[in-house]
Design a protein around this nucleic acid. Structure first.
Lengths: 130, 130
DNA sequence: ACAATACATTCCTATATGGGAATATGTCAA
DNA sequence: TTGACATATTCCCATATAGGAATGTATTGT
């Protein structure tokens, strides 16, 4: 099997950086394609294709006005991603407090032993975590 | 150009559902590969390959113990994704309250004009948003 | 009807993929 | 050393890109 289609879900769709840029750009206000092209500096066909992908997974809505198509981000479709990452938030919030504690310990220690005894960042991750 | 490598960043790495499953599974506790294979019901080479991708983008850490390799999710690497989605959270929170308001209005209205005048969901998005 | 404008689609191609199968590597135990 | 165990890697292939270039389609103004 090959990689899943970009249109298979929001996760795959937003993996592409340009598509995230577009979503950011049209989050507050709907915009016609031409504006996206101009302000984000992408090729028009490229933008149309990206918008098509986003539309298929429900990440954007469209509205036609004359010859222009106004696209806008539908934030609701990003929610599943947010929720998936949210389950991990408690871990890094945890880790953050641990890092803070350690930092304080280091400050205490360095008063006596000097800065050379301060472990580099890498050791926090490579070594014995348990 | 083809699609960006799965190893290019966390966004691309987590686009694959199996990899998200793995990340969920080893979030609380480090696990040897064999356990992931058994409990998630994937082929061993497949798990190894997924773990390699996750390792390359820093989404997991490894520790060797004898012949076993213990992997564990590094939640910190998921943070950029969470933060990107967080910028949209305010929109759907917004929209939620708007939906609530509208729901209340509909309830009021339906007392007088009956249920047929309730606009279908689609109209909320297609129509005049500004 | 016709030209101009605004988008969408098609065709092309190099490239990366994920799964299956087979094999290689590394580590321990006797 | 040898065998067993745990994991990693390689090979093969069908598939889906994303971008560039060219072309198609829809809509408006005259």
């Amino acid at each position: 099997m090959a990689r899943a289609a970009t249109t298979s879900d929001a996760f795959n769709a937003v993996a592409e950086p340009r598509r995230r840029e577009i979503l950011n750009f049209i989050a507050l206000q709907e915009r016609p394609v031409g504006e996206i092209v101009d302000l984000l500096g992408m090729e028009q066909p490229s933008v149309s294709k990206h918008l098509r992908v986003l539309l298929q997974v429900g990440l954007v809505n469209v509205r036609r006005d004359g010859r222009r198509m106004f696209y806008r981000t539908d934030a609701e479709a990003i929610r599943p991603i947010h929720e998936w990452t949210e389950t991990f938030a408690r871990y890094w919030r945890h880790q953050l407090s641990r890092v803070k504690e350690r930092a304080e310990l280091r400050i205490e220690a360095s008063k006596d032993i000097g800065p050379d005894s301060i472990p580099r960042r890498k050791d926090d991750f490579d070594g014995n975590k348990n």
